[in-house]
Amino acid sequence: MLLFRFFTSLHLSVVLFLLLVVDLLFGWYCLEGNTSFYQMMNRTGLVEWLLTFGRSDPFHTSWFVVLLVLLFFLAINTLCCTGEKLTRLAKNFHATLQRKSGRFTLSVHLMHLAMVVLLAGYLLSYIFGEVNSSVAVGDSGMTTVVPGTQLRLRVEKMEMIPYSGKGIPAFEGRRIDAEALLHISLKGYGEKVQKISMNRPVFFHGWSLFMQTFNPKSEGSMSKNIYIVLDVRRDPGIPLTFCGMTAFVLGVLGYLCFRPRKTGTNENSIPLHHKK
């Protein structure tokens, strides 16, 4: 009971928030010049990263581990707080919905729950996500098999998008995107042909394919080979993450719409030493 009271404390939230800010600012300092160290987390996943990179450089990893712990406590704190309040509200749920202040409270708790869902989504992604980095697919009609999977990829057609602006002289004559018609097949799951480009991934039976880069970047490029490089991922946390994001935005909107307005004359200026 004592532990539950501790975890429902608003003071705990405040302390955790402030610790998170300090920790993230320290992380900002650690990131300086060490970007590639953290970049590897997106390729290896959290557990492997902690056991390899993390262990090899505890100083630069410490802020991230502390961040995980603080976020864990924040999630527990949020769940306990929201759980307790929502249990109370559930008894008079319809009445709560009728009142503006009730809708405001529900919005706040929606935000809280959304944040926990969001964190759970990230955690799932980083623990159970699978990544196949830098899978090159040429436009020669040759099929590429993604290592360790049955996924077979082939570029059927590729169109380069040139830079058409005038504002950046360095970009004149350059290609800024490539649209490739990608043929994907997976044993037992059929096949699919879909366009892929820099910010337009392709999804296929739980796999998602992201274009990392393409070649050549300009007509006079030294490397003439035509190809795209893909990151092939399987990420079970994404649906949760996007649900969390949507719910959070709805929660904030509700917070802004149903916010109780302060009225009366207490907003007039009163010297601080006169205030009781």
Binding site: L31, S36, F37, S125, S208
Partner: peptide, 12 residues
């Protein structure tokens, strides 16, 4: 959409 992960921890 660009990198395949919603949060990249290497970006300050």
């Amino acid at each position: 959409l660009g990198w395949g992960t919603p949060v990249v921890w290497h970006d300050a």
